[in-house]
Write a protein that binds this DNA or RNA. Structure first.
Ligand code: FES
Ligand code: FES
Lengths: 145, 145
DNA sequence: ATAATAAAAGATATTTTTATCTTTTATTAT
DNA sequence: ATAATAAAAGATAAAAATATCTTTTATTAT
């Protein structure tokens, strides 16, 4: 386990992939996405169902259907994807697992940890999916292996 | 799930607790530790067995036995506890879950994420357990609730 | 030696996360 | 209308993480 759950890792990779692959206005199917980000197809389907319900991505059934994102979706911060899957713990939780983090009853890690949490929050809140994707579009960054 | 697994959270809390409670040279039993850090007793026993084997803490069986730490144990960085339980993923792993993080094949998060990873590493490597515990000894920080 | 103590070790159970497979529903093209 | 397509939904399974309970071993005090 890293910072994010595996489910959340798949979610972020798929969102980047969809954004990248549908910039031409077309849609992309689950099979292609799961191949492109190296994830189990049916598990990813569940994740995308959830992201779709939460309006992180859009979907269309039937022939020529698939997943895509509109302008508003692309402008959302990556934080929204993380919140949709892993919840808010990474943004507000105690590093030692105390039931809530507070200045009044801080754990030994608190002073150092809150700074790190702020940096993570900043990274995820202040950059849009679109933005993270710029280098991917330029072929500089990768989503596989 | 936060940054660390629940097991790792218990491990860190227990190490702080033991360090704090045995500074007078006495030992502390599992029951007292689990009460003190609010963790399941038998689960914590397993964790401490593992930490003991890896020489993060010391233990003694029989009457007046229990867990304690020597000077060398206290001087170890908290990173050693994390490595002993959660492994090295948090220190070196890719934020998006790619099988390895690299400058040559970076993911879209890489540039931001590596800085955060460095800060986490710094926090865990550069401060000893003893050090983190100073405020606990002064009654400023907490391990419960 | 014996009994009491406390961790170590072993076995089992529960819960959560991750993964797979099948059926249904909506949409499109013929 | 019908067949083909693709996501949604539902059901089930496997694996990993977390939790509990029992037995064994080492140590100490009597
Ligand atoms: S109380 Fe633990 S991080 Fe704030
Ligand atoms: S490649 Fe993803 S964090 Fe470095």
């Amino acid at each position: 386990m890293g910072i994010f759950s595996k489910t959340c890792e798949y979610a972020m990779r798929s969102v980047f992939f969809i954004a990248h692959r549908t910039s031409d206005g077309k849609k992309v199917g689950i099979k292609e996405i799961s191949l492109g980000i190296d994830s189990p197809e049916h598990f990813l389907a569940k994740i995308l169902q959830s992201l779709s319900k939460q309006d992180i991505v859009k979907s269309a059934k039937g022939p020529n259907g698939g997943f895509y994102m509109d302008e508003a979706n692309l402008k959302r911060p990556l934080a929204d994807v993380v919140k949709a899957i892993d919840g808010r713990k990474i943004f507000t939780g105690c590093g030692l697992g105390l039931s809530y983090c507070s200045e009044i009853n801080p754990c030994p890690l608190h002073n150092d940890f809150k700074i790190i949490r702020e940096k993570i929050t900043k990274m995820l809140e202040e950059t849009s999916i679109e933005n993270f994707n710029e280098n991917l579009n330029l072929g500089i960054t990768s989503l596989k292996k």
